[in-house]
């Protein structure tokens, strides 16, 4: 019982972080499912959404700022695909990946230039940044609502993919690019739609994520982006439920490792702090390597064979 009492705050914050990762991970998994591209810039789009919020909320009320941030982020995602990925559609996969890294570099440097490298305080969003008490634990409301909001959005997305014409087109394109083109699907609009959905979710995710953090810096997007990607791989890239489950697992594990020293000391396993929190980021990647070695297709991924 003692274990749960100590671990509970970490688990709750882990579920919340997991929800935020899930929203980013969907963007990765959808883009990968269709274009077979690791969109390295996705984490930076997430960071830009955070910065946009900082700047827009400084001069407009929140009911204007929130929709404005979402619209602008979606436009950014759409533009990136148009400018940086579309011209390379027929190029080798490595070139597109390099282009994605280039975009990420550009966005980070742009953010560095505009912010001057300073930490920008994220505006407090009323209601969701209020403090509440759950299970006798003091936390912000955003921590509690994130998992529910995430699941709601994911259910809506799965409905969209399974029951609409656009969703059907997306599934077709991810199965076979050329054939779906021959069947009259307009590939470019399907891909644009994918980027729009992905960046929309990243924008929502950034609002939830940064509310719990002191501020936004140009490199804020890198780590959450990478972790969300790992979540997508872990769940089986291309599978949306997989990405969500992967993200929750990674969020919870990461959060527990942050408090592992304390948890272990309370339970008498170790005598003193041994600095295991250093590994909270690295653990994600250990998990990645393990899953890639033993089950490269992830938890829910489809098996693929290379054709000669």
């Amino acid at each position: 019982m003692n274990f749960f009492k100590v671990a509970l705050p970490y688990i709750i914050s882990g579920v919340s972080v997991g929800g935020q990762y899930a929203l980013i991970a969907i963007g990765y998994t959808m883009v990968y499912g269709i274009l077979r591209l690791i969109n390295f810039a996705h984490g930076d789009v997430f960071m830009v959404a955070g910065l946009l919020m900082v700047y827009i909320a400084a001069s407009f009320p929140l009911f204007v700022a929130i929709p404005a941030v979402i619209v602008l982020t979606v436009m950014l995602g759409f533009t990136i695909e148009r400018v940086a990925y579309r011209p390379l559609r027929s190029a080798p996969r490595m070139s597109v990946m390099i282009s994605a890294i280039g975009v990420s570099y550009l966005l980070q440097n742009l953010a560095l230039y505009i912010t001057g490298g300073l930490n920008k305080n994220y505006p407090a969003i009323p209601w969701i940044s209020d403090r509440v008490t759950v299970f006798g634990l003091d936390t912000t409301r955003v921590t509690v609502i994130t998992p529910f909001l995430t699941i709601l959005l994911v259910v809506a997305l799965v409905m969209l993919i399974n029951h609409t014409k656009l969703g059907m087109a997306m599934r077709a394109v991810s199965k076979d690019f050329e054939t779906s083109q021959l069947m009259g699907i307009r590939i470019n609009s399907v891909i644009s739609a994918t980027f729009i959905i992905g960046t929309f979710l990243a924008a929502v995710g950034s609002m939830l994520y940064f509310t719990n953090y002191p501020g936004v810096v140009p490199t804020s997007g890198g780590m959450p982006g990478l972790k969300a990607f790992v979540a997508a791989v872990f769940g089986g890239i291309g599978s949306i439920p997989g990405a969500v489950i992967g993200a929750f697992i990674i969020g919870i594990c990461e959060s527990i490792i942050k408090g592992l020293d304390t948890i272990l000391i309370v339970n008498g396993v170790i005598g003193e702090q041994i600095g295991l929190a250093t590994f909270s980021d690295a653990f994600t990647f250990v998990l990645l390597i393990i899953i890639l070695v033993f089950k490269p297709t992830g938890l829910f991924g489809e098996k693929q064979t290379d054709k000669v």
């Binding site: 591209l37 690791i38 790992v230 791989v233 690295a282 990647f285 390597i289 890639l292 070695v293």
Partner: peptide, 24 residues
């Protein structure tokens, strides 16, 4: 373990490895 992986999986696994080393 990682050299068996194909292009982009290899990229992300080695990237992850660099992060692990940095933490260690």
């Amino acid at each position: 373990p990682v050299l068996k992986l194909k292009s982009d999986y290899l990229a992300i696994a080695t990237l992850g490895f660099a992060e692990i080393i940095r933490a260690v």
